[in-house]
Simulated scan of single mutants.
Amino acid sequence: MQSRRTFLLGALGMTAAMAGCTTGELNIFTAEYGARKDHGYQLPSVPIHQIARKYHRQIVRYKTDEKPGSIIVDTKDKFLYFVMPDGKAMRYGIGIGREGFEWKGTTRVAMKREWPTWTPPAEMIKRQPELAKWRGGQPGGLSNPLGARALYLFNRSGDTGYRLHGSPEWNSIGRAVSSGCVRLINQDIIDLYDRVEIGAKVIVI
């Protein structure tokens, strides 16, 4: 994990203009968190009213120099912005890396997977030996930590090991709890997945 942070930190130097600023909610999708079937899985509803309104999926005014289709992850306020035309963005609430697992930098979406297999890295198994049973990969499913979708982040050195992914732990949104990945509510990662193209720029600030 330390080595990943080291080569990602070289991509820093983000300005306030690049990061963007939000100037108001335009449309909120609080009703979009109900149960649904997805590729044979019965995705449960999320008790969205137990999550702060600011973390509900919504279109906001957003000023940035980044092109539409780019993603900006604001780790301070725990928002992910998908940049849209005309000074707008789709904003999602996220969970981020806990203390000691934070990172910043510029990457790109190299792969997209639906109901992905999760393979814990060796350093995670060392910290949590009970995960050794998934050394060969945990199949996709409702209890899989990567949730319904995953976007795989690469930089010039290759796979960063970090993902934008869904999570069955909806109550982790708005908190710093992960091992460095950026997690979204499953209904939100499905929405983001359908918008993002391979090669999309991802800036984590």
Results as ranks from 00 to 15, higher is better:
R4N: 12
F7E: 11
L9D: 04
G10M: 14
A11Y: 14
L12G: 04
G13E: 00
M14T: 13
A16R: 13
C21T: 09
T22S: 11
T22Y: 02
T23P: 04
T23I: 09
G24V: 14
G24L: 13
E25M: 15
N27M: 15
F29L: 12
T30H: 14
A31M: 07
E32G: 13
Y33T: 08
G34W: 11
A35G: 05
K37G: 02
K37C: 00
D38S: 15
D38Y: 15
G40I: 08
Y41P: 05
Q42E: 02
S45V: 05
S45P: 07
P47E: 02
H49F: 09
Q50H: 12
R53K: 14
R53H: 07
Y55V: 11
Y55W: 14
Q58M: 07
R61D: 05
K63S: 14
T64M: 04
D65G: 09
P68D: 03
G69D: 05
S70W: 07
I71T: 03
I72D: 00
T75A: 01
L80D: 02
Y81D: 02
Y81K: 06
V83R: 12
V83D: 06
V83F: 08
P85H: 06
P85Q: 07
D86L: 15
G87T: 11
K88A: 09
A89K: 12
A89C: 10
I94A: 04
R98Y: 00
G105W: 06
T107G: 00
V109R: 02
A110S: 14
E114M: 14
P116H: 03
T117S: 10
W118A: 01
T119E: 10
P120I: 07
P120V: 06
P120A: 02
P121F: 10
A122M: 12
E123P: 04
M124Y: 07
I125V: 15
K126N: 07
Q128M: 10
Q128D: 12
P129T: 04
E130S: 08
E130P: 02
A132G: 06
K133I: 15
R135F: 05
R135W: 05
G136Q: 13
G137T: 08
G140Q: 08
L142G: 08
A148S: 13
A148H: 01
R149A: 00
A150D: 02
A150P: 08
A150T: 03
Y152R: 10
Y152L: 13
N155M: 13
T160Y: 11
R163D: 01
G166N: 04
E169K: 14
S172Q: 11
S172M: 10
R175S: 12
V177I: 13
G180C: 05
C181M: 03
V182G: 00
R183F: 01
R183D: 00
L184E: 03
I185F: 01
N186V: 00
N186G: 04
Q187H: 12
D188P: 10
D188N: 11
I189C: 00
Y193V: 01
D194V: 05
G199D: 06
A200P: 06
V204F: 01
V204S: 03
